[in-house]
Design a protein around this nucleic acid. Sequence first.
DNA 1: CGGGGTTCCTGGCCGC
DNA 2: TGCGGCCAGGAACCCC
Length: 267
Amino acid sequence: MPELPEVETIRRQLEPVVQGRRVLEADSHPSAKFVPAREIVGSRFGSVGRRGKYLLAALDDEHELVIHLGMTGTLRSVERPTSEDPYVRARWWLDDGRVLEMRDVRRFGRIRVVPAGEHGTIPTLRDLGPEPFDPDFDGEQLWRALRASRRRVKTQLLSQRPVAGLGNIYADEALWLARIHPGARRVSRRQASELREAVRTVLGQALDHGGTTLRDYRSVDGRQGDNQGRLACYGRAGLPCLRCRTTLVARTYEGRTTTWCPACQRR
DNA sequence: CGGGGTTCCTGGCCGC
DNA sequence: TGCGGCCAGGAACCCC
């Protein structure tokens, strides 16, 4: 899915498209995941924010539109609806004549409208960890958060609780950079500190390059990301580690393929 | 409650 | 060419 760098790239492009625009009409796929898109007819968009992988668009200072893009979701602004595209799941007609479309092949994305700031009914958003670039996010905080559970560090990162915004790609990248075994069930203060640095480095680099496009990801302007050629670990099982040349290995943890270097990421 | 398995979807790719 | 099986960037939900 779009992870933090991809969602942030989308946010930056989306805000100037919708801010100040009133929604004249809306339509959606009949699934309950998308039907709330229809609730915002008549509302005017304010600023567009982001928490973790969630887009939060203010509406008339009273509500907010919460969009999660799931695995394959994208947003785009078009001159007129693209009727030939069967994967458009929601569509908003704006008062400047443009149409905002959410496309999502697998339909793992979700749309909700909630009173401003009230995220309690969205489980992962309610329990979301700190933003990785928040000045308050430090190694000590991450160490404490990881210590609170005995689950594998990889699994914990995907839960969004210790820190917001990592998915399978950047979790593997950050653990590789910090030299931490993804299956570890506890990490030291020092490791947590290195992981905090690695998370920022990996996400910052991806953001600088417009995100990672493996297949579906596009930003609002339709462009692919440019970070896929810079991945050091994710998807490289069987290839040499870029630090020590040992062959990277992969296995499944809690249903997610995980890649790491058996030499420089020891338990 | 924390943890783990299941479920929601479609498409691409591989092997037979 | 056709088809079955497997895999894919996520998280909500249900049950123990």
